[in-house]
Design a protein around this nucleic acid. Structure first.
Length: 193
DNA sequence: CAAGAGATCATCT
DNA sequence: GATGATCTCTTGA
């Protein structure tokens, strides 16, 4: 069952936690792929200095100000794309970063795109995941109730998870220490332990 | 194994 | 003109 818009309208931290154990699905002409989400991070709004929207409403952050249930994809370090899912009310900028998934369907395709045969190395990080799933900025603003990219519930019970600090946000003052990263600790497929 | 450097570009100052 | 929600490779122990 595809997650409805109302799911993404909940508080960002709740969305981030509940996404664990759900399945990211990517439909593509070359073949479809999916993966079980095992790591997420919450970026909870304009006051959160780690959130891009703390810089205000700009061309780049515009999507986060839009309605929940859309993809926010941006390009970083000259190499990598990051996939976020926009949460909460329209005009309130917040999103959940998808950091890692456990590959399920379309594994051969992911191996090709990633140029790696190591299952654990296919989508265990936000940049890797976007490569494996062919997610780039053309998907920025994509509606998650559409056909190209969405998250579905496959009826799996909520996995046990652990909250830790977010990665790579040392510049964010007191916000860098907030426990807004959620990982399925038992999974081999998280980016770091 | 841990640590460091380099790659490379859209976005904002 | 600086810098970043990263990754990979190289180095050295």
């Amino acid at each position: 069952m595809k997650l409805p818009r109302t799911f993404y309208e909940q508080s960002t931290v709740d969305v981030a936690k509940q996404l664990l154990g759900k399945y990211l699905v990517r439909k593509h002409p070359d073949g479809d792929s999916s993966g079980r989400i095992v790591e997420t991070e919450a970026y909870i709004g304009p006051q959160d200095l780690a959130c891009h929207a703390a810089k205000g409403r700009t061309k780049r952050t515009e999507v986060m100000f839009g309605a929940a249930g859309h993809a926010y994809v941006y390009f970083i370090y000259g190499f990598y794309n990051m996939l976020n899912l926009v949460t909460e009310a329209k005009d309130y900028p917040a999103a959940v970063l998808i950091r890692a998934v456990e590959p399920m369907d379309g594994i051969e395709l992911m191996k090709e795109r990633r140029k790696s045969n190591v299952l654990r190395n296919l989508a265990s990080g936000p940049g890797k995941l976007c490569q494996a799933f062919a997610v780039d900025r053309t998907l920025n603003g994509a509606d998650l109730s559409g056909k190209v990219l969405y998250v579905e519930d496959r009826g799996e019970p909520a996995p046990k998870f652990q909250a830790t600090v977010r990665i790579g946000v040392d510049y964010a003052g007191k916000w860098k220490d907030k426990p807004f990263r959620f990982i399925v600790r038992s999974s081999e497929f998280v980016s770091k332990r």
